[in-house]
Measured scan of single mutants.
Amino acid sequence: TEEVEKIVRELQKRGVSQEEIQRILKRNGIDPRDVEHVVRRLR
C-alpha cells in the first residue's frame, strides 16, 4: 500500500535496516508479504 511505502522509504532514509523495518511494520499489524513486496520494489 501507499502508506507502507511511505513508511519504508522514511525508515530507509534514516538508515534503518531491512530486518528492523520489517519488524517495526509487523508490530504495527502490516502484512509481512506487503512489506516484502514494498522493500523489494524500493531496492
Rank of each mutant, 00 (worst) to 15 (best):
S17D: 08
E5V: 09
K6G: 05
L25K: 00
R23H: 12
E19Q: 11
I21G: 00
N28Q: 14
E36Q: 05
I21L: 08
V39S: 02
N28A: 13
E10S: 08
E3S: 09
K13E: 08
L25H: 00
Q22W: 11
R14P: 01
V8N: 00
Q18P: 12
T1Y: 14
R41I: 13
R43V: 14
R43N: 15
Q18V: 15
E20G: 07
I24K: 03
R9N: 04
S17M: 06
K6R: 12
I24M: 07
K13Q: 11
N28T: 12
K13M: 08
R40M: 05
V4P: 01
Q22D: 05
I24D: 01
R40Y: 03
L42S: 03
E20S: 08
E19F: 11
V4C: 11
G29H: 04
R9P: 00
E10T: 09
R14I: 11
I7V: 06
K13W: 07
E3N: 10
Q22I: 15
R41H: 13
Q12Y: 15
R40Q: 13
R9D: 04
G15D: 03
R33T: 06
E2C: 14
R23Q: 13
D34E: 13
V8T: 02
L11Y: 05
I7Q: 08
N28V: 13
K6W: 07
G29Y: 02
L11Q: 01
V35Q: 01
V16E: 07
N28L: 14
D34V: 15
V39K: 03
R14N: 09
V8L: 07
L25M: 07
Q22L: 14
E5M: 12
R43K: 12
V39H: 02
P32L: 05
E5D: 05
P32N: 03
L42A: 04
R40T: 11
Q18C: 14
R33H: 08
I21A: 05
R27A: 14
V35S: 02
R23A: 12
R40D: 15
R41T: 11
V39E: 02
P32I: 06
Q18L: 15
D34Y: 13
K26N: 09
E5L: 09
I24P: 00
V16D: 02
I7A: 10
E19P: 06
V39I: 15
D31N: 10
V4K: 02
V38S: 02
L11R: 00
Q22S: 10
V35T: 02
P32V: 04
E10D: 10
R27W: 07
E2G: 07
R43L: 15
Q18Y: 15
K6P: 02
E36D: 07
E36N: 02
S17F: 03
K6Q: 09
R27I: 10
I24C: 04
L25W: 00
E2R: 09
R40G: 12
V39P: 01
R14E: 10
T1Q: 08
R27H: 11
I24Q: 07
Q12K: 08
E2Y: 11
K6Y: 07
V35L: 08
R27K: 11
R33C: 08
E36T: 03
R14K: 10
V16C: 01
D31T: 03
G29F: 03
D34R: 06
R41P: 09
Q12G: 05
T1S: 09
V8A: 12
L42P: 07
E5T: 06
V38H: 03
E3A: 10
Q12S: 12
S17H: 07
L11D: 00
V8M: 06
R27P: 02
E10H: 09
G15R: 03
R27C: 04
E2W: 09
R43H: 14
I7S: 03
S17N: 09
